[in-house]
Design a protein around this nucleic acid. Structure first.
Length: 605
RNA sequence: GCCGCCUUAGCUCAGCUGGUAGAGCGGUACUUUCGUAAAGUAUAGGUCGCCGGUUCAAAUCCGGCAGGCGGCUCCA
């Protein structure tokens, strides 16, 4: 079965879902029912009725009846006038709305419609004259098609969940009930998909984070405000130290700036205007208003002003690991992936001349590549976001936007990196490059970003004197490689299923004793481990280890150490002591090493 | 923020149509000194998320709040 056939099948199932719902609740009003990754949904509005997951068996049973009846999907056409009449008579106001948009503009895509016109009545228009309908048995729906031949040919499906969704994605519109289903050509493929979802649940970073004692939440502290426990704090610290090490080797200077900031600064930077809903704020006892910093770009610009006089001072690369706070909508918070704070951006701003831009941007991309290689991030690509010059509102000089977009493109081409372009996704101050990857569920996710800022230097009056003695504006490259360190931790946990690389494991080594007779030998091992300093990839890193000499069986000690995903377990019994050996247990298996080779062994893990 | 679902011991969960709380794991004590994923016995843990209502009686029914989960980008 090819992609088109699969989509037709999934779309047919969307119709069948609506048909079943209509048989059960005759007053149901329908929105749209498109194909999505792995399945379909249908937006439904039933007055007085809230569909719950308990209703799924009933709906699915009705769907099976429709499938068993094997109705043909029959296409027909109507003029737009007739169609609107049909929708009115059928009491399908959402369809009427769609038809009006089709008549006026020839599309129903929200992004292509003028928001002021969308959904309004159109007496005439330059859109379409006729539209198509599909009928299967007792159900007819406005639809572009195509469909499966008949309702009997729709493969294997399962209704998954029902969720609220605003009509056409707008918060001011009524909220509909969106019924989600997954569908595949065969039962085997469906089962494989459901199985994959089960497996993904096991590596959910929220679950792993609690199990591995890395972080937790407290309702008294507040939602979206994680508490890193000792093990989580170790990881955060290591990631932060590692990035600082790499960046300092690449000429970055670290600075530290305050968590709260007077509103003046954010007014100058434009954040107060564009970003105020996302900022926490407070008023002090003297009536002055402060924001809790959601980003430290403006602060860095303040430092720039103090450090830069002439082109000889450029490029200037300022970096910081500050704890930032952002007021994300409460419903969007998830684990460490989306938090309110502290968000430790692995942030840096590079102030460059126009001549330096391309080369500096290439160095940024090379640093990305190096860091991801060390972190074991493999499947990623870049997404170049430019404004849609025809439609988007963007501030500043169009030529500068275009020019800097071209320079980014050249830099990526010259390095041969993989990227796609996306119009209309740019930040308000310049074009940007996002690093995209897939999460365990196969969904696309942004892990980091690099933006060019063509607007702020003007607005914040950042300047330098060039070799001819003229005042010039610098260009700013704003970049984060790990994104936020908290978020990256979550990403790594899911990617590795909790088995972090050795250098990042909060507890790298655990000594498990068999009985008390080996205590003196264990002391010897402990003193050796205490002296070992590992050098890769983070320099001067002491070995993090503990000893489990409790009065428990070896089996239990192994079980617990493995549950905590301790990468290296050293098992010490009388025989090891006698031979001056160590039994090493890792995910790969068991082996014996001599006491003398312990340091060498750990350097190689 | 909005919609739906969920919240019982440290953890995982049971508790039917209201009669006032249970298991396994974990914890603790004692016994056991043990070679690659759970030793044995005993024992202590809970204002059933919080606040209010209905009732002779609420973990259970109703309302509000808080927290968690899924979604709100995919467009006839």
């Amino acid at each position: 079965m090819n992609k088109e056939q699969l989509n037709a099948m999934r779309h047919s199932l969307a119709h069948i879902t609506a048909q079943a719902v209509q048989r059960i609740w005759s007053g149901a009003k329908f929105g749209v029912g498109p194909v999505i990754e792995n399945g379909f949904y249908y937006d439904i509005d039933i007055e007085e009725v809230k569909i719950s997951e308990d209703d799924f068996s009933k709906i699915e049973a009705e769907m099976r009846k429709i499938i068993a009846a094997d109705y043909l999907f029959e296409r027909s056409e109507k003029s737009i006038e007739e169609s609107i009449k049909w929708a009115d008579e059928a009491k399908q106001p959402y369809k009427t709305e769609l038809l009006n948009d089709l008549r006026r503009s020839g599309t129903t895509l929200a992004k292509d419609l003028d928001p002021a016109e969308m959904g309004t009545i159109a007496e005439s228009g330059s859109g379409v004259d006729t539209v198509s309908f599909y009928t299967d048995g007792d159900f007819t729906d406005l639809c572009r098609g195509p469909h499966a031949e008949s309702t009997g040919r729709v493969g294997a499906f399962k209704l998954m969940r029902v969720a609220g969704a605003y009509w056409r994605g707008k918060e001011t519109n009524p909220q509909m009930q969106r019924l989600y289903g997954v569908a595949f050509a065969t039962q085997e493929e469906l089962d494989a998909h459901l199985n994959m979802l089960e497996e993904a649940k096991k590596r959910d970073h929220r679950k792993l984070g609690e199990e591995l004692e890395m972080f937790t939440f407290s309702e008294d502290v507040g939602k979206g405000l994680p508490l890193l426990m000792p093990r989580g704090s170790v990881i955060k610290n290591l990631l932060s130290r590692y990035m600082r090490q790499e960046e300092e080797m690449n000429g970055y200077k670290y600075i530290d700036t305050p968590v709260i900031t007077h509103e003046r600064l954010y007014e100058k930077s434009g954040h107060a205007k564009f970003y105020s809903d996302d900022m926490f704020s407070m008023v002090d006892a003297e009536g002055q208003k402060f924001y809790v910093s959601p980003m430290n770009c403006p602060h860095h610009h303040q430092v720039y002003v103090k450090l830069v006089e002439s082109y000889n001072d450029l490029p200037l690369r300022l970096a910081e690991h500050a704890g930032l706070y952002r007021h994300e909508l409460s419903g969007t918070l998830t684990g460490l992936i989306r938090i309110r704070g502290p968000i430790t951006q692995n942030d840096a701003h590079l102030y460059v001349t126009k001549d330096q831009l391309k080369n500096e941007f290439k160095k940024v991309l090379e640093l990305f590549r190096h860091v991801y290689e060390v972190m074991g991030v493999e499947d990623y690509w870049y997404r170049l976001s430019l404004p849609d010059f025809d439609k988007d509102k963007f501030e500043g000089d169009k030529n500068v936007w275009q020019e800097s977009g071209d320079i980014i493109r050249q830099a990526m081409d010259e390095l041969g990196v993989k990227y796609i372009e996306a119009e209309g996704e740019a930040a308000f101050y310049g074009p940007k490059v996002d690093v995209q990857t897939r999460n365990v569920l196969g969904k696309e996710d942004s892990i980091a970003t690099s933006q060019i800022d063509v607007l702020i230097p003007e607005r914040m009056d950042l300047a330098y004197v060039d070799s001819d003695g003229n005042k010039q504006r610098p260009i700013i490259i704003h970049r984060a490689i790990l994104g936020s360190i908290e978020r990256f931790m979550g990403f790594l946990l899911e990617k590795t299923a909790g088995w972090l690389p050795f250098w990042l494991a909060p507890e790298q080594v655990r000594i498990l004793t068999i009985n008390e007779t080996v205590n003196d030998y264990v002391d010897e091992i402990v003193s050796i481990l205490s002296d070992i300093v590992l050098m890769k990839p983070l320099k001067y890193n002491e070995v993090r280890f503990t000893t489990d000499n409790r009065n428990e069986s070896l089996g239990k000690k192994i079980r617990e150490a493995t549950a905590m995903k301790i990468p290296v377990q050293l098992i010490i019994g009388p025989r090891d002591k006698e031979n001056r050996e160590i039994s090493v247990r890792t995910q790969k298996g068991e082996e014996k090493i001599s006491l003398n080779s312990l340091r060498e062994y750990l350097e190689g893990v």
